[in-house]
């Protein structure tokens, strides 16, 4: 599933936040990806809110592809946080790793590098965003 032009009106805050990330990511056209961060590309990432909302996607160099519901693919990494932390991550004030280091999100050994790489790309993208380039 490609990046939606407008979020589903019935979508939850996680989907809305990630949709904004997807739009800003597309604007950057891969400029934020370096050799050290490109390990985050092409991987299935599952984001979960403690409210039960789940969104899965795959980050590609120039766009973010949301996965359909019920995708059979096993995600390469799962990020599970409470809505308050997701909200601060979507403003760019914090990144996912900050929540992990605060002890409020899991950090499985086999997902660490992907979580660190995606964490940096997500925050940089959100802090690169202004009304003008959305």
């Amino acid at each position: 599933m490609q990046t939606p032009a407008t979020p589903d009106p019935n979508a939850g805050p996680l989907y809305i936040g990630l949709s904004r990330f997807a739009r800003l990511w597309s604007v950057q056209r891969g400029r934020l990806v370096s050799a050290r961060l490109e390990g985050a590309l092409g991987r299935a990432i599952r984001c979960e809110s403690t409210t039960g909302e789940i969104v899965e996607f795959c980050l590609r160099r120039e766009q973010l592809d949301f996965e359909s519901e019920g995708s059979p693919r096993t995600p390469h990494a799962t990020i599970r946080m409470n809505p308050k932390d997701w909200s601060r991550v979507f403003t760019g004030e914090l990144h996912v790793m900050a929540i992990i280091l605060a002890g409020r999100a899991p950090f499985p050994k086999d997902q660490r590098r992907l979580l660190m790489q995606f964490s940096m790309l997500l925050q940089t993208t959100m802090l690169s965003g202004t009304a003008g380039n959305e």
Partner: peptide, 16 residues
């Protein structure tokens, strides 16, 4: 600055 500076800067900002 570069994203990596912001990443490092906020690394410990979620502590409670």
């Amino acid at each position: 600055g570069p994203g990596v500076m912001l990443y490092v800067a906020s690394r410990f900002q979620a502590l409670e």
